[in-house]
Design a binder for these strands. Structure first.
Lengths: 216, 216
DNA sequence: AACTGTGAAAACTTTCACAGCC
DNA sequence: GGCTGTGAAAGTTTTCACAGTT
């Protein structure tokens, strides 16, 4: 039996469970039930059990889950028990904010180099990371075995950044530019888009004024 | 007939369609088909038509959609044809990056004030916006009629920021802190979480090592 | 002929509810 | 008694496929 395709929803929740489990572990709690995990992460106990069941059987009936063991299992499942080397493209404000995000390194995501096209920036150091010319992207990605790329460029430069990262051998991209990236199917891509989220809020806060079918 | 609950998926896609339509309009294109919209935004033509059908009938059979008219309709549906006044809580690196995001203001989301607790920052100006003490949050939100709050604080300060924003009368929150916010049901909340997205990439790039049932 | 709008079918996700184990 | 693991049911989203309109 091959692993059934795991949905994005499940993966997202596993991350949330893991974050909580680490807090519980730091607080000295040794055992946790699916109900408690659910209450603290905003889902249902059945959902927690179903999510975990895709990967195996981690609890003891009548008892619950051992916090430390489940933490370790989720780290292995998510692949975060290791170091990921990351290439950042774009050393502007978003890039700088990411470079200063200490949590990222603590969680195993190490930004090895920041690439930019601005000659003023190249050669400088931002938050302790060197800014390197885009021309050297392929070489540095190969040399330092960077597997994940973060795109924090202006929108018009994002597609080329993605192309270059993919060609250089990166296997996943986190995209902050508000554009849809065209990529090969074997490249994992996720996007974060502030404008989209704000528009979703705007929709939620806007009274319905759209055309409507009559009743009856 | 009341409007059926519109899913987050649909809202997200409407935003994407709108962004594309604006580009097409700027490029002088007058008519677009659901197929073209789908190809350019990465979905299916049936999905485009179904999404729009929740709000009315915007196209002409045999012809397609008038770009300018559909743009205007989507702006009205999403509620982005107006100005939204925004409160930013946290004037650190993420806050600064957001303040510098020119697109936000151009799209109608105006950050009116940035709140912080750091006495060093209060009174200064970041990207043209004044940094104000958290003590004045309620007063400023009321006075300037701020309806949306953005939380860009450290995680441990996020819940209090949310409570204060809600109490001050904000109706929606965009949360950048990696915590789950407890809020009243009538407050719209959306979260953006870099760590979660990176872990989702990590999962996608990690070969399956989880326990497995035997075949047969 | 081209393309929309939409019920019906398929696919997917969540919840239910209970057997099984501690 | 308490709690997990899991099939089955319910609910949600996407895709299909075609009648209807220009």
């Amino acid at each position: 039996m091959t692993r059934p395709r795991i949905s994005e929803f499940t993966v997202r929740r596993l991350s949330v469970y893991l974050r909580l489990l680490r807090e519980l572990e730091a607080g000295g709690q040794e055992v946790v039930s699916s109900q408690e995990l659910a209450d603290l992460t905003g889902t249902s106990s059945a959902q927690v059990r179903k999510d975990l069941s895709h990967f195996g059987s981690f609890g003891k009936r009548g008892q619950g889950y051992t916090v430390s063991a489940l933490t370790a299992s989720l780290e292995e499942i998510l692949g975060v028990g290791r170091r990921w080397n990351v290439a950042l493209v774009g050393a502007g404000r978003i890039g700088t904010a990411l470079l200063g995000y200490r949590d990222m390194a603590r969680r195993g995501f190490h930004i090895a180099a920041a690439f930019d096209t601005d000659p003023e920036k190249i050669g400088t150091t931002v938050q302790g990371v060197e800014v390197v010319s885009m021309d050297r992207l392929a070489a540095v990605v190969a040399e330092e075995q960077l597997e994940i790329g973060i795109i924090a460029t202006p929108p018009e430069a994002a597609q080329e950044a993605a192309d270059r990262l993919a060609e250089a051998g990166v296997r996943g991209i986190l995209n902050f530019a508000p554009v849809r990236l065209e990529t090969d199917g074997d490249l994992a891509v996720r996007s974060m888009d502030v404008a989209l989220e704000l528009e979703a809020l705007s929709f939620a806060l806007t009274p319905d004024r759209s055309p409507r079918r009559e009743a009856g």
